[in-house]
Design a protein around this nucleic acid. Sequence first.
DNA 1: TAGATTGTTAATCGATTAACAATC
DNA 2: TAGATTGTTAATCGATTAACAATC
Lengths: 214, 214
Amino acid sequence: MSKSMKVSNLVINRLPMYHRFLTELKSNGAHKISSSALADTMHLTASQIRQDLNCFGGFGQQGYGYNIDFLLESIGRILGLDQNKNTILIGAGRLGSTLISHISFSELGFNLTGIYDNDKNIIGNKVNDIEIQDIKNLSIPQNNQNVDVAILCIPKQACHETVTFLIQNGIKTFWNFTHYDLQINFLKDCITVENVHLSDSLMKLSYKKTNNDN
Amino acid sequence: MSKSMKVSNLVINRLPMYHRFLTELKSNGAHKISSSALADTMHLTASQIRQDLNCFGGFGQQGYGYNIDFLLESIGRILGLDQNKNTILIGAGRLGSTLISHISFSELGFNLTGIYDNDKNIIGNKVNDIEIQDIKNLSIPQNNQNVDVAILCIPKQACHETVTFLIQNGIKTFWNFTHYDLQINFLKDCITVENVHLSDSLMKLSYKKTNNDN
DNA sequence: TAGATTGTTAATCGATTAACAATC
DNA sequence: TAGATTGTTAATCGATTAACAATC
């Protein structure tokens, strides 16, 4: 219910999980679920689920539980998935183009409007029907005025220069697949960053295996 | 120092971060660092770093700080990066082959020994000099007796059958890029799983952007 | 030795769990 | 109405921070 208090990071980390499990339940044809049934499915506690949801409002009904459609839509709105976010890919190499074809951007409100690279050999090629453009074209006002999010799939060495350029062009939100630390270098610019460190995940797997931590 | 007490998940999540930052410091030529200097670099507190490290032992020296080489090597050992882990890729589609060429598996002790698929059209092709084999060949004892880890890059629908087959062949550790929930379906088999949900990360970015949560 | 910084204990803060009145 | 289950407050548990003696 409290709109004012800061929502903890642990809660925010669980929101996509809720979204994922509720989407699954919905596609299985379920219409309602209680906090305790959802807790069983997600390996959480019913109390935790109710506490988490009540950071944002009351989405259930006493004696009934939660309407899955309504809860899913509500969580989607909390996550901002209902808002259109114009998005560009920076770096159309192997990783970048694989991401573009692998992730359902549009389902989450991300609208892919451009792909940029600095490699003359691939500029002009198409990925998912979008032509790869020279990154220099980004500074043409008509191209960048509505860009909300940039996906960074460039080499670490190119990062500082490229991100400086992107910020100059008004982009403030980054999905960062490089290991370059944006937070530390550009915090002053009030940017929003989500880093994906795949090797961190692989190291965690190594830890779990080594320490039999199932 | 305590070897017996369970290490919290929050600490384990930070271990790869320590590894990453220490690797960076080392490559910049640094030889020692204090907990407070490392805290500044990583945006943590000195207390937290010392508490985290002391879950595993005392790696520093009073009045001096931490030797970067020694600490990095120690954290690598805690994570099990020094142990050889024979690894196969299941599913040599776009995502699988991109991962194979994008991640430095060998640096983390993962030794890629095979790539498997069930698509006749790509069996026989090579990815990173490794020939794609028919997944049926996995049950030949000589092929699977030393497999420690499987990377799952297959469609969700194929997951249950494939994982059942892999477990039957003695594989117990999975790096899972599908959205199929292994923990729920195979927990009884004492398997170790690390799930990568890229869309969860994208949803978190959406949340941060929408809620100006920098 | 004096200064610095660790390892570790104690204090605080925050998150999870338990309990229950409200209510559908 | 009676049963079920939420929203919310209180109790517990765990993680982070602060403090400081040990010691390099």
